[in-house]
Amino acid sequence: MTTTAPAVVETEAEHVARIKKAQDQGVSRAEAWRRRGPLLPALIFMIVVTQIPFLFTLYYSLLSWNLVRPGSRRFIGFQNYVDVVGDSTFWQVAINTVIIIVGTVLIAALLGLLLALLLDRVFLGRGVVRTLLITPFLVTPVAGALMWKTAMLDPVFGVVNWVLPGEGIDWVSRFPLASVMVALIWQWTPFMMLLILAGLQSMPRDILEAGRVDGAGPFQLFRELTLPHLRRFIELGVVLGAIYLVNTFDQIYMMTQGGPGTASSNLPFYIYQRAFLGFDIGQAAAMGVIVVIFTIIIATFALRLIFKTFTGKQEAS
Rank of each mutant, 00 (worst) to 15 (best):
P204Q: 04
P204N: 04
P204H: 05
I207H: 13
L208C: 07
L208P: 08
E209Q: 10
E209W: 05
E209A: 07
E209P: 00
G211Y: 00
V213I: 15
D214P: 03
G215L: 11
G215Q: 12
G217H: 06
G217K: 10
Q220H: 09
L221T: 01
R223E: 00
E224C: 01
E224H: 09
L225C: 01
T226E: 13
L227S: 11
P228D: 11
H229Y: 14
R231G: 01
R232H: 12
F233P: 00
I234W: 00
E235W: 01
E235S: 03
V238L: 15
V239C: 06
L240I: 12
G241P: 06
G241L: 03
A242V: 03
L245Y: 04
V246M: 15
V246C: 14
N247E: 13
T248Y: 02
F249Q: 05
F249V: 09
F249P: 06
D250L: 01
D250Q: 07
I252T: 04
M254H: 03
M255I: 10
M255R: 08
T256I: 09
T256F: 13
Q257C: 01
G258C: 09
G259H: 04
G259N: 07
G259F: 04
P260T: 08
T262Q: 15
T262C: 08
S265L: 12
L267Q: 07
L267H: 03
F269E: 01
Y270C: 04
I271H: 05
Q273A: 08
A275N: 07
A275W: 08
A275V: 04
L277G: 01
G278H: 06
G278Y: 12
F279Y: 15
G282K: 15
Q283N: 05
Q283I: 10
Q283K: 14
A285H: 12
A286E: 01
M287F: 11
G288K: 13
I290K: 09
I290P: 10
V291D: 05
V291N: 07
V291P: 00
V291S: 05
V292F: 13
V292A: 14
I293Y: 06
